[in-house]
């Protein structure tokens, strides 16, 4: 059973999202890291990069797979988790603290459209 945290929002692409003062923090869920297997590389966006919702902002690679991490909302990258450059395994070890990027968002309403933990849990059941 993969871990789902109540205080986060989720996407169908298995990203988790938290919101604080107009900035979101994004990572991938426990389910996502488990299906990818041992993560060998995280390609981070550049600070100041602008993305529209749904654009590929980062990429996570295991030996046998490469998964895009999308811009969960539209906005500008303000921070990236540089620790992942040397230690991509942190995503496997602690997916909910190993965030990938932070983004200043344009439209906070978009956040409200994301799944809450219950909806995500149902979603996982539906795809398994």
């Amino acid at each position: 059973m993969s871990e789902i945290r109540d205080d986060l929002r989720y996407t169908e692409n298995h990203e988790w999202v938290s919101l604080k003062d107009g900035t979101v923090r994004v990572g991938i869920t426990d389910y996502a890291q488990d299906s990818l297997g041992e993560i060998v590389y995280v390609e981070l966006p550049e600070i100041e990069d602008e993305f529209s919702q749904g654009e590929e902002a980062a990429s996570i690679e295991s030996v046998k797979a490469a998964a895009p991490v999308y811009a969960v909302m539209s906005g500008r990258i303000t921070k990236v988790n540089r620790k992942l450059e040397d230690s991509p395994e942190l995503v496997n070890e602690a997916p909910y603290s190993a965030y990938i990027y932070e983004m200043e968002i344009r439209d906070p309403d978009e956040f409200e459209h994301l799944m809450d933990s219950e909806a995500y849990s149902d979603y996982l059941e539906s795809i398994d």
């Binding site: 060998v40 046998k64 797979a65």
Partner: peptide, 13 residues
């Protein structure tokens, strides 16, 4: 190594 860059994994990406 670094096969995740390649077409057989990334396909159209």
């Amino acid at each position: 190594t670094l096969q995740a860059r390649e077409q057989h994994i990334k396909r159209e990406r």
